[in-house]
Deep mutational scan, measured.
Amino acid sequence: KKIKIKIKVYNPETKEVLELEIEVSEEEAEELAKKLAEELEKKGYKIEEVEI
């Protein structure tokens, strides 16, 4: 079964909002969402919402 992940991120420095969407297997979904959120935060983005 495929799971659709939508991530909306906001960069306070540039006032930019990015929306990302990807489909992955159920097993990958939670781990991938967690890794993406961590990487984006390292780059200065503030995570507003992660929906699985």
Rank of each mutant, 00 (worst) to 15 (best):
K1R: 14
K1V: 07
K1D: 04
K1T: 06
K1G: 07
K1E: 06
K2W: 15
K2L: 15
K2D: 03
K2S: 06
K2V: 08
K2M: 15
K2T: 12
I3N: 10
I3P: 03
I3V: 10
I3W: 15
I3C: 15
I3T: 11
I3K: 11
I3E: 02
K4V: 04
K4F: 15
K4W: 15
K4L: 13
K4E: 02
K4N: 08
I5V: 04
I5L: 14
I5H: 01
I5C: 03
I5W: 06
I5D: 00
I5S: 00
K6D: 01
K6A: 03
K6P: 00
I7N: 00
I7L: 09
I7W: 14
I7H: 00
I7T: 00
K8S: 04
K8N: 02
K8E: 01
K8Q: 03
V9L: 11
V9D: 00
V9T: 05
V9F: 13
V9C: 05
V9N: 00
V9I: 04
V9W: 08
V9E: 00
Y10S: 05
Y10G: 03
Y10E: 02
Y10D: 01
Y10P: 00
Y10T: 05
Y10R: 04
Y10C: 05
N11K: 14
N11Y: 03
N11Q: 08
N11I: 08
N11H: 09
N11M: 06
N11C: 15
N11P: 02
N11V: 08
N11F: 04
P12N: 13
P12K: 15
P12C: 15
P12A: 15
P12F: 15
P12W: 15
P12R: 15
P12E: 11
P12V: 13
E13N: 11
E13D: 11
E13F: 15
E13I: 13
T14F: 04
T14P: 02
T14N: 11
T14M: 05
T14A: 05
T14D: 06
K15Y: 11
K15V: 03
K15W: 10
K15H: 08
K15C: 11
K15L: 06
K15F: 14
E16F: 15
E16C: 14
E16Y: 15
E16N: 06
V17R: 12
V17D: 04
V17P: 04
V17W: 06
V17T: 06
V17N: 07
V17H: 12
V17S: 08
V17Y: 11
V17I: 08
L18N: 05
L18H: 07
L18R: 05
L18D: 02
L18T: 05
L18Y: 09
E19D: 07
E19W: 11
E19M: 15
E19T: 14
E19L: 13
E19R: 14
L20P: 01
L20C: 08
L20W: 08
L20I: 14
L20N: 02
L20D: 01
L20Q: 02
L20V: 08
L20M: 09
E21D: 07
E21N: 11
E21P: 01
E21M: 13
E21Y: 08
E21S: 15
E21R: 15
E21F: 12
I22T: 06
I22N: 06
I22H: 09
E23Y: 13
E23D: 11
E23M: 08
E23V: 12
E23S: 11
E23G: 08
E23R: 06
E23L: 10
V24T: 07
V24H: 05
V24S: 08
V24K: 02
V24M: 02
V24I: 05
V24F: 04
V24G: 07
S25I: 11
S25P: 12
S25F: 08
S25V: 13
E26R: 05
E26L: 05
E26G: 07
E26Q: 10
E26W: 09
E27V: 08
E27I: 08
E27D: 14
E27M: 13
E27W: 07
E28L: 08
E28W: 07
E28G: 13
E28Y: 09
E28K: 14
E28N: 12
A29V: 09
A29D: 02
A29I: 04
A29W: 06
A29H: 04
A29R: 03
A29K: 04
A29C: 09
A29E: 02
A29Y: 03
E30C: 15
E30K: 08
E30T: 08
E30V: 12
E30F: 14
E31Q: 10
E31K: 10
E31N: 09
E31C: 12
L32N: 04
L32A: 12
L32C: 13
L32M: 05
A33C: 11
A33I: 12
A33P: 03
A33T: 07
A33Q: 04
A33G: 06
A33V: 12
K34I: 07
K34V: 06
K34T: 04
K34R: 12
K34C: 09
K34L: 07
K34Y: 13
K35E: 06
K35Q: 07
K35P: 00
K35F: 10
K35Y: 11
K35D: 04
K35M: 09
K35N: 05
L36G: 00
L36M: 12
L36H: 02
L36K: 02
A37Y: 05
A37W: 10
A37E: 03
A37V: 13
A37R: 09
A37N: 02
A37F: 11
A37Q: 11
A37I: 15
E38K: 08
E38C: 12
E38N: 11
E39P: 00
E39F: 12
E39W: 10
E39S: 05
E39Y: 11
L40K: 00
L40A: 03
L40M: 03
L40N: 00
L40I: 02
L40T: 00
L40G: 00
L40E: 00
E41L: 05
E41S: 08
E41Q: 12
E41W: 08
E41G: 08
E41C: 09
K42M: 06
K42N: 06
K42A: 10
K42W: 07
K42L: 10
K42Q: 08
K42I: 04
K43M: 13
K43F: 07
K43A: 06
K43Q: 12
K43L: 05
K43E: 04
K43D: 03
K43H: 05
G44Q: 01
G44E: 01
G44H: 01
G44C: 05
G44L: 02
G44F: 01
G44V: 00
G44Y: 01
G44D: 00
Y45I: 02
Y45R: 01
Y45P: 01
Y45G: 01
Y45L: 03
K46D: 09
K46R: 05
K46I: 10
K46P: 02
K46Q: 07
K46A: 06
K46E: 05
K46S: 06
I47C: 04
I47T: 01
I47F: 02
I47Y: 01
E48Q: 08
E48T: 10
E48C: 15
E49I: 14
E49A: 15
E49G: 12
E49R: 13
V50S: 01
V50H: 01
V50Q: 02
V50M: 07
V50K: 01
V50A: 02
E51D: 09
E51S: 11
E51A: 09
E51M: 13
E51Q: 09
I52C: 09
I52F: 13
I52E: 01
I52Y: 10
I52L: 07
I52T: 02
I52D: 01
I52A: 02
